[in-house]
């Protein structure tokens, strides 16, 4: 049994748009050294996803609701306690993972953790495209303010930037993209999409524009190559599910290794040119 061609096209379109958005948003997460936040935040979606499976409503809505509420709680706790994002998210994601696994029926666990592109519909694709475009545009509007806040909070405050507010908007946008990406890669691997493409781009970028564009391109590259590779490799063993998350991770890691080699070679070249 092979995957219907329209499902493959929907998955590819969803994957490319989510990859672009995740890479672009992830570029800020990597700069802020919040990479683990992006990864851990994705697991917070699991209880929402589980409720969707159990009560037969759209899992994306369940995941997004949980991520949305968690992002607000994380932001509020950060404001009150001044603890690093990693600490707060670290505590929340283990709790969410535990609850999610308890609620989730065993039969759906694999799909929830690693995604399933066989269930990507036209409606889901359209929603993913719209959400990705909204997330990228909204992030572009606050990108400079977020970067300035990372460079110096005092500098940003002296320019009248409300750092707390832009951080909250950013967290909510990350939640949106993570919720959509879950269908493709699953909750365990979606964090990869906001970390590795940006990390790969960072090693070979000398300015922000190049960095942001490359992060988005590598995000789309990881998802599209991963989806195509998985359908080619797994097509003989296909049943009702098609797990592509691991293939997306492999594709992204190959991009990361290539950029790391480019970076390594260019730094060796600079060293050898020194008198």
């Amino acid at each position: 049994m092979s995957l219907p061609i329209d499902t493959l096209i929907y998955s590819l379109i969803t994957g490319i748009f989510v990859g672009v958005a995740a890479g672009y948003l992830g570029s800020l997460m990597v700069l802020e050294r919040m990479s683990l936040v992006g990864d851990a935040l994705s697991h917070v979606a699991l209880p929402g996803l589980a409720l969707g499976y159990v009560y037969h409503f759209n899992q994306f809505i369940g995941a997004f609701a949980f991520l949305f509420i968690s992002a607000i709680i994380i932001w509020q706790l950060r404001r009150i306690t001044k603890l690093p994002f990693e600490t707060i998210v670290g505590a929340m994601f283990t709790l969410a993972l535990a609850i999610g696994i308890l609620i989730l029926p065993q039969v759906d666990l694999l799909e929830a953790l690693f995604g399933n592109i066989a269930s990507v519909s036209l409606t889901y694709t359209l929603a993913a495209v719209a959400c990705s475009i909204i997330a990228v545009i909204a992030t572009k509007l606050i990108y400079n303010r977020l970067v300035l806040g990372m460079i110096s909070e005092d500098l940003a405050l002296s320019k009248g930037i409300n750092i707390g507010r832009v951080n909250l908007i950013y967290l909510l946008l990350v939640s949106l993209i993570v919720a959509i990406g879950i269908q493709i890669t699953g909750t365990l691997l979606v964090g990869f999409l906001v970390i590795v493409p940006a990390a790969a781009a960072k090693s070979i970028s000398s300015n922000l524009k190049k960095y942001a564009i490359l992060s988005a391109v590598f995000g789309a590259g990881s998802t599209s190559i991963g989806i195509i590779a998985s359908t080619l490799i797994l097509r003989t063993t296909l049943e009702l599910t098609l797990i592509v998350g691991p293939f997306i991770v492999f594709s992204g890691l190959i991009i990361f290794i290539i950029t790391s080699i480019i970076k390594w070679r260019s730094s060796r070249l600079i060293l050898s040119r020194r008198p």
Binding site: V147, L155, N207, L208
Partner: peptide, 21 residues
């Protein structure tokens, strides 16, 4: 205002981009 410290070590930002803010 010029603060004492800024963290640019990990940010791939050019002088033009920074000043363009």
């Amino acid at each position: 205002y010029v603060p004492q410290e800024i963290s640019v070590k990990d940010v791939p930002i050019s002088v033009r981009e920074f000043l363009s803010y």
